[in-house]
Every structure is written in C-alpha cells, then in structure tokens.
Amino acid sequence: MNAHSNIAVIDLDDTDLTAANQSLQSKNGTEQNAHMRVVNPRGSHALAVGIDAPVDIEIDGNTGYFCAGMNKAARITVKGNAGQAVAENMMSGEVRVTGDASQAAGATAHGGLLVIEGNAGSRCGISLKGADIVVGGDIGHMSCFMAQAGRVVVLGDAGDALGDSLYETRIYVRGKVKSLGADCVEKEMRDEHRGELAELLQTAGFGDADPKEFRRYGSARNLYNFNIDNVGAY
C-alpha cells in the first residue's frame, strides 16, 4: 500500500459542490483524522466550508469566495490562489494558501492560523476576532479595519489606511506601510512582542525571517469612547 492510497479524492469535475462539502464534513463533530484531496476546484465558491474535525484537506487549484469558511480544527491547504474572504470566521485549525488571496482574507476569524504565502488583497483581517494571520507578501488597503483581537504578520508591505478604527489586534509589518488608518499608531517592539512574533513566524513556516526587522502597530485607543475633540477622525 502506498502512502496515498488512503487519501480520499474528490473530483469537482464530477461531484457537485454540496456533495463535495458533505464528504469533507463527514467527520464533523468527531476527533477523527482523515486525509482528503480536492481536485479541479476551478474557482468554486464556498468550498470546504463548515468543517469541524481535525482532518487534512488539500485543494489542488484555485478556489473562489469563502473557501474554508468557519473552519474548526481542520488543516486546509489551497495549492493555488484563493478568492474573496478565505477562512472567513475561522474558529480554529489552520488554513494555508500557497498563492495569493483576494480581499477580506480571514475576515472576522475568531481563532486558528491563516497563512498566505503570496500577497493578500485589501481588507485582509477585517474585523478580526482572535485568529492569527501571516502573509508572506504584501497586504492591500484598509487591512485590519476594525480588527478586534488576534495578530497579523506581514512580511512585505501594507497598503493605505492600515488598522483603521483598530481595537486590540496587534499588527507586525516588515516592509513599508503606505499609511495608517484612524487611531492606528506604531508602538514599541518589546521582548514579549519579538517573542510572539518569532513563534508566529516559525509556526507559519517563515522561521528564517528576523523578528527584529518588523515594526509593531496597534490601537491608540483614542476612539474607544466618544469624545468631541476627536470629531475629525470620525
């Protein structure tokens, strides 16, 4: 028996989306592991969503909107590019995109790790609620808008208005930041930050990046309570 013989292969050329998702969700609610492979995704939307088991899923090709949406526990790899809002509202587990991701990657995600090896579009980590996101390349404008918790690491550059109306998410950027959004400021990198960053880089597979090259951004917390003197920022 070769190593691949117990990998279930789902071919989207001859399986409809709902049937494919049902197979991918077949271990939901259990602690069972399984290894599944999806071929010919051809940009399908809502693929591998709502999974709730520690399974390994490999998607060979590009995916559409909301791939791995609301993921719990599963390790999902997209070998290709991912469309809008990959891993939206993820709760736990790990989602990895080997190519680029479109806008709103990791939107509202509560937990788990999202790794994008290429670039991410605008609004990466919008309304983030506790997950970690590591991007190998650049991120687009309005990223981390209203992000509430969790950490975002960017090895490349960040676009305009990074961290606008930010709450408690910590953002680490190695490259240039085009501009900061309202209430987002650069903050001191202390040992604890270098420590958590090193760990995140390691887990995400970017262990050779040097945490000392990153800057940290966070909320100035000036907009937490309504104050007339801040009216220009609203």
Binding site: T18, A46, V49, G50, Y65, F66, Q84, A85, R123, I126
Partner: peptide
C-alpha cells in the same frame, strides 16, 4: 466585511446553506 452587492450575497447564502446542510 466579506461581501458587497447582490452577486456576492448569492454566494454568501450558498456558503451558509453548505455549512448548515
């Protein structure tokens, strides 16, 4: 945060249906 307009909405609805069988 992750959709705008009617075409996106159709995909969002599909996603929610896929998650809830």
């Amino acid at each position: 945060p992750d959709w705008t307009g009617p075409d996106d909405l159709a995909i969002k609805i599909r996603e929610l249906r896929e998650i809830t069988s």
